[in-house]
Design a binder for these strands. Structure first.
Length: 832
RNA sequence: GUCUAGAUGGUGAAAUAGGUAAACACGCAGGACUUAAAAUCCUGUAAUUCAAUUAAAUGAAUUUUGCGGGUUCGAUUCCCGCUCUAGACACCA
């Protein structure tokens, strides 16, 4: 019998609305704060990539919930920023309205995924109740300075400084700096918003321009940002990325001396790290170098030496005495001045090792060459103070006014400083900027915004800052606001102290550098102010792989379309790239030229008389016509099927190419589950199967612990293959399996749960971890490293002397045995 | 240029601490049921060779985790070199 997912899912979605599964429970003493990076509600809606994240966190939180944790799994929207503004200009609307619509759509789509979220905690960064506190943090930064590892209020500077010079101390301060200026977008852009000297959005030219900008003094926090990385459960490559973004640069001055038999060979004095050494040729020590490298490299060098000039790079491994290894580059050149070394920094961890070691020696060499070195150190960082202002409309206004060009902050009592309302007409006409608005001055007597024409020092009406904050201003502290989103003050202490920082954070790889670093900085700042009691925002972070899909491209020049296979690379640069819809293609690769759309173009066909288009695999994007939305799949297969399939796709962190073909396997599996549980029988289980299944169940729990949840699906499949094949119907066991399965497929399991005669929701059932005892110990018998047999033994006879007898019965010539390798609990390898 | 990650069947992939490579699925091939189709179920599915047989079932051996080498009784896993792919950063300031 097939199960009717449409009916069942509709029914349970309706019933689940009435429950608040994630409701806080005082009796529970464990907490789990799990968080997805909040989405940017673009007009295009939720796509497959987003939904993986939500389903992933949902499965983990459903599991943790029933292990007895209080769960916080909130959601919100990051809604300030350029995309909404540009989309507004395009559609002749206001950003405010667009965001409203998009959020409505997003929520509708997310609710279809069968996820439990704390909807009562929802936030929105462009809501003035939220950005009031973004401004509050800015004022705190503005009014603080960093002194001897502490944050002090700027008022407490105990020596006389003119107020205009306070800028040098504030953590939020004004400074002239070169910024990437895009005249067309009328905005500054971050480095990562630019590609090949052009803005990524729009592709406009970007120039450098010196302007007065707000900055945040993140550089004061660099030592802490580096040091605290050690305690985080983040993937190493993410940590390394942070280290490199901060970029402690090579600043060692090193004297190198190479010795062999105390014979001085070479010395170098450069302000460079030890990563590279330049050798000049011809010289006395070239032969030694040639001994260090392998044959093919040697041949290369000898060839080089016959030329008039040469330079070549080789790598050799240096091993330090404390087992620390590092590759270094060797350059061989007769004009080494041109070969100025570029790879020149020592990262934070290596730095420590350098302090310890006094001599290093080079591996792979018969003659060991000792290198002595001395160095002085200095620190230079790649990371610069964050530029924190944008010349845009759609962002948080900076709560600052100016008296005689000196900045003063608006008292927090009078926050939020609301973004001025404007009409659609005005917005469309001008590329908007707060500079042009008439009602944008601060009345310091009445404490409110007033018209610019009243600006007058005597009346205490002053000009307001015309900048807004960048898009990451709202996102670098949002995880704190989720805990008490509607609280009148900044943070509700009791709740903050309970939930603390995020236990598991999930999000896109593209945010590894910026967003994570800035959040960490703000968290540390609030810690130093004693507002919160933890130093890091996200204890564990798992980056999510993107989903790619096929795109189809045709190349056009003026009024002519060329077949892709007849275009060479030079010509390709001239041509206009046009992404086309899959529907316009036949035979997968050939453009369907008979569609009306393309009738107006001249067509240059290939020798087979066809127009071939290019097929690429790229990130999903509306402009590339390769977006897949969950809606269509859910309609066809149901929510449970979609949820299980999208997790079954593969490792969460890897990028994946979208492919719907394998969903049939999931569909079959769900039918299997449905039909299996409808048989209401209760039998005893055979011990062998019981142990097998319990082993699998333990594995499932282990994978949950590691947050590797995709592997569990195949384990479930294995379990059901055993159950069905051997006709095992045991109520107790079935319940355990069903509850675990409900993390993945909530609706079908909920229906089965009720049909089996249980009352209430399956999501109020506790998950119990069953410990089993397996007395049998398995040994693999290998003969000359080849697997031959398995034998089982118990604890009392877990030794070679006992096992030898069994083995000798199986082996034909026990006299000829040369050696037996015995590894306890694992293996016996017999060598002849 | 530097750094990081990765490479396993036709496809997605699995292999806990170095110990039976390819679990679990998809797809494909063959079969059962059916007037037919869909669905479902069963069997096979890394490669090569050999034995045997009318044929099928079967049995055995060798090779195989991008390429080459090392450590080890034993390497998908650790080490070195190379090739390719992806990502991040920088160069300008």
């Amino acid at each position: 019998m097939k199960y009717n997912y449409k009916k069942i899912e509709k029914k349970w979605r309706y019933i689940h609305k009435k429950f608040n599964f994630l409701k806080f429970n005082k009796k529970k003493n464990k907490k789990f704060y799990i968080l997805n990076m909040f989405p940017y509600p673009s007009g295009y809606g939720l796509h497959i990539g987003h939904s993986i994240g939500y389903i992933y966190t949902d499965i983990i939180s459903k599991y943790k919930l029933r292990l007895g944790y209080n769960i916080l799994n909130p959601i919100g929207f990051d809604s300030f920023g350029l995309p909404a503004e540009q989309y507004a200009l395009k559609t002749k609307n206001l950003p405010k309205n667009i965001i409203k619509k998009s959020i409505y759509n997003y929520k509708k789509q997310i609710k279809k995924l069968g996820v439990f979220l704390n909807w009562d905690k929802e936030i929105n960064t462009s809501d003035d109740k939220y950005y009031k506190w973004t401004q509050f943090i800015f004022i705190k930064l503005f009014n603080s300075y960093y002194y001897k590892n502490k944050i002090l209020p700027i008022k407490k500077i105990n020596f006389k400084i003119k107020s205009e010079n306070l800028n040098k101390f504030r953590l939020a301060f004004l400074k002239y700096s070169y910024i990437n200026w895009c005249p067309k977008l009328n905005s500054i852009l971050a480095n990562d918003e630019i590609e090949n000297g052009r803005s990524i959005r729009g592709g406009y030219k970007v120039i450098l321009k010196k302007t007065l900008q707000w900055h945040l003094r993140i550089t004061k926090y660099i030592p802490k940002l580096l040091k605290d990385l050690d305690n985080l459960k983040w993937p190493d490559n993410v940590k390394n990325n942070q280290i490199k973004w901060i970029g402690l640069k090579n600043v060692y001055t090193i004297k190198l001396k190479l010795f062999k038999k105390n014979f001085k060979i070479f010395s170098i004095n450069k302000k460079r790290s030890i990563h590279s050494i330049i050798f000049n040729y011809p010289s006395r020590f070239t032969n030694y170098i040639l001994n260090l490298i392998n044959k093919t490299q040697k041949k290369k060098i000898i060839k080089l030496l016959n030329k008039n000039y040469y330079n070549e790079k080789f790598k050799i491994l240096i091993k330090f005495k404390n087992n620390y290894r590092k590759k270094i580059n060797i350059y061989i050149s007769n004009y080494y001045k041109n070969y100025y070394l570029k790879d020149t920094y020592i990262n934070y961890k290596e730095d420590k090792e350098f302090k310890k070691v006094k001599t290093i020696y080079i591996l792979k060499s018969k003659n060991i060459i000792y290198i002595k070195y001395t160095f002085k150190k200095k620190y230079i960082y790649n990371l610069k103070d964050i530029i924190y202002s944008r010349q845009r409309y759609w962002g948080e206004p900076i709560p600052i006014y100016y008296i005689n060009n000196i900045p003063y902050s608006i008292n927090k009592k009078y926050l939020p400083l609301k973004l001025p309302n404007i009409s659609k007409k005005y917005f469309i006409k001008s590329k908007f900027n707060l500079n042009y608005i008439k009602k944008w001055a601060w009345d310091d007597i009445n404490k409110k915004v007033t018209y610019k024409k009243y600006i007058n020092n005597k009346n205490k009406v002053y000009p307001l800052d015309v900048n807004t904050m960048p898009s990451y201003a709202g996102s670098n502290w949002y995880f704190l606001r989720y805990i008490s989103p509607n609280y009148k003050k900044f943070l509700f202490n009791n709740k903050i102290n309970y939930w603390k920082n995020v236990d598991l954070y999930i999000g896109g790889k593209e945010h590894i550098n910026g967003h994570l670093l800035y959040s960490r900085f703000i968290t540390k700042f609030l810690y130093d102010l004693n507002i919160i009691k933890f130093k890091e925002p996200f204890k564990k972070f798992i980056p999510q792989g993107i989903i790619l899909n096929e795109t189809y491209i045709i190349y056009k020049y003026k009024n002519t379309i060329y077949s892709f296979d007849i275009i060479n690379d030079k010509f390709k640069k001239k041509l206009q790239k046009i992404y086309i819809n899959k529907k316009d293609i036949i035979l997968n690769k050939y453009l369907n030229i008979f569609k009306k759309k393309y009738n107006k173009y001249n067509l240059i066909k290939n020798k087979f008389n066809k127009i071939l288009c290019e097929v690429k695999i790229e990130k999903m994007s509306k402009s590339k016509y390769n977006i897949i939305t969950p809606d269509s799949i859910i309609k066809k297969y149901g929510i449970d099927c979609f949820r299980l399939y999208i997790i079954f796709l593969g490792p969460f962190q890897e990028k994946k190419i979208w492919n719907i073909n394998k969903i049939n396997g999931i569909k079959r599996f769900l039918n299997k589950v449905w039909n299996f549980f409808l048989i209401k029988k209760n039998k005893k289980i055979n011990k062998i199967y019981k142990i097998k299944i319990y082993k699998y169940l333990n594995l499932i729990h282990l994978n949950f612990k590691k947050f590797i949840i995709y592997k569990n699906i195949s384990i479930f499949m294995k379990i059901f293959n055993i159950l069905i094949k051997n006709k095992i119907y045991n109520l107790k066991l079935n319940k355990i399996i069903l509850i675990l399965l409900s993390n993945y497929i909530p609706y079908i399991t909920e229906e089965i749960w009720n049909r089996l005669g249980n009352k209430g929701s399956i999501f109020y059932e506790k998950i119990k971890i069953i410990k089993y005892k397996d007395n049998l110990i398995k040994y693999l018998i290998l003969i000359n490293n080849k697997f031959k047999d398995t034998i089982y033994t118990d604890k009392d006879n877990n030794n070679l002397t006992y096992l030898k007898n069994i083995i000798y019965n199986k082996v034909y010539y026990p006299d000829k045995i040369k050696k037996i390798i015995f590894i306890k609990n694992k293996i016996i390898n017999i060598l002849f």
